[in-house]
């Protein structure tokens, strides 16, 4: 067992329903890396591991929601393994989109009433419950508060989603 096999284990482990992988600090602590060169050594290890797993169609990614590093399939592989959980479910995709936009503009939280207002459709609560079952949001039925879980950061490239939206708005303008 060497450093790379330990990192491979840490990056591919499931921590709980909403989290996988490990933070930089967790990895460095287990590998006993510390001091002023910690980040440099950490980056070198990650670059080396990414070279090994590249041939398998895997890449190392960072989830900015909970600062965890994890292993993901390359874009082409993601298409092949059908990573899109909302295939033929555009309604759910649209509701999640509203939740993401609303959370970003409201410091990471939103409410059921806000989503209902944005969606202008009936049965939104059913959508939200289903999204909760997927593990993407936490729904507080009493207060009506909605929070995004870190899981969405593992499965969805949010930056790319915003770029897609920005490009669309640019075309329309």
């Amino acid at each position: 067992m060497n450093e790379l096999s330990i990192i491979m284990h840490l990056l591919s482990r499931r921590i709980n329903k909403h989290q996988i992988g490990a933070t930089e600090d967790e990895i460095c602590e287990i590998l006993n890396i510390s001091g002023k060169n910690q980040s440099l050594l950490f980056n070198q290890l990650m670059i080396n591991l990414s070279k090994y797993i590249e041939i398998l169609g895997l890449i190392i990614k960072f989830n900015s929601i909970d600062s965890h590093w994890f292993i993901s399939f390359e874009a082409e592989m993601s298409d092949i393994i059908k990573a899109n959980p909302f295939e033929n479910k555009p309604r759910l995709a649209a509701t999640l989109f509203c939740v993401i936009i609303s959370c970003i503009t409201n410091f990471g939280k939103t409410t059921i009433s806000e989503i209902v207002k944005l969606r202008k459709k009936k049965g939104i609560l059913v959508d939200l419950r289903e999204l909760e079952n997927y593990g993407y949001i936490i729904l507080n039925k009493d207060s009506g508060e909605i929070k995004l879980t870190p899981l969405i950061g593992y499965q969805l490239d949010i930056n790319k989603l915003f770029i897609n939206l920005a490009l669309k708005l640019r075309e329309e303008n």
């Binding site: 591919s12 990614k61 993901s72 592989m77 490239d157």
Partner: peptide, 15 residues
Amino acid sequence: IAVLYEGCWNGSLQV
């Protein structure tokens, strides 16, 4: 809206 998600989904590896 669903079209905006194109190319944004990742499959994460959990072993």
